[in-house]
Design a protein around this nucleic acid. Sequence first.
DNA 1: ATGAGTGCAAAAAGTTTGCACCGCT
DNA 2: AGCGGTGCAAACTTTTTGCACTCAT
Lengths: 165, 165
Amino acid sequence: MSDIAALDKSVSPVDKFREYLVTKGQRLTREREIIVDEVFSDHEHFDTDQLVARLSGRSDKRSVSRATVYRALSAMNDAGLLRKVARPNGREVWEHDYGYPQHDHMVCSQCGELFEFHNEEISSLIEKIASAQGFLKTSHRLEVYGTCAPCRRPKKRRNHKLDMI
Amino acid sequence: MSDIAALDKSVSPVDKFREYLVTKGQRLTREREIIVDEVFSDHEHFDTDQLVARLSGRSDKRSVSRATVYRALSAMNDAGLLRKVARPNGREVWEHDYGYPQHDHMVCSQCGELFEFHNEEISSLIEKIASAQGFLKTSHRLEVYGTCAPCRRPKKRRNHKLDMI
DNA sequence: ATGAGTGCAAAAAGTTTGCACCGCT
DNA sequence: AGCGGTGCAAACTTTTTGCACTCAT
């Protein structure tokens, strides 16, 4: 059901958002469209402030205020377009939840890098455990912490994102 | 190794904390001891503000300031006594990580209730996936979202924590 | 037209920090 | 004495909100 919709690439993120907004009696404004465009222009993880930096204070007609970005992200989250994920150092990060296969994350405590992985067994196992307790699962969030392969071989120093804070 | 220590009930949280502090050249002050006592007096999840409310502004000799509570929680986290977990509605919550068996959480989106569960299969599966990618796992955090059993039978209204915000 | 949406600035919420004073070792 | 710790208040960071104006339907 929702899985099918989520994998149906024929409906663009913007259209998906519009569909959601309609059901809520809300509108797809120019600002919201700009934000969706920007957010889905690549598959990178991003935090709210990064997005605000990219969108606000522009000189052209594609500038959006901080408040509107916050409001839009919240709506996109409710619409199923985005979800919040792992924080390499306490910060929340957004990622696409629509048109992107289900996956989880490994977070390197050394360099802060995020690694995505998908495993069917885990999903079904979680599903099984939940239903066994009468819990109706809608989603899950799994983060594995530790040290990534590159950081485990200390040949030379690598990019320590965590140090850059 | 660290698993063994974590399950060794002969070392109290306070002692565990002292051990950690010594290695850091820090001290187990009266305030820190009060905080550890309070935090380990029961197994409930709590947020920082709740703890501050219980500890600051007291008239007796067991009053601790907000800043000190924040500083102590951070240290206890580093010491392995506490860890942050699921936020039923965006808030971070603390729980015991020391002397308490590994477990994960199901979060009810309806009432906000947290349900703990433990499953060995999941842990080993995660372990397997991580090492397959050369990732050295130290810990994980899994949250399952959905609707809990009580909230699924809509006989009558129940405590909606989420509404109380 | 009309109700939702936007920008701006102020306010809230949550957490950190500078500093003078306190106390353990 | 010397260094870490505490309390307090100010500063910060991040997110939310009130309000007058704008715009999508």
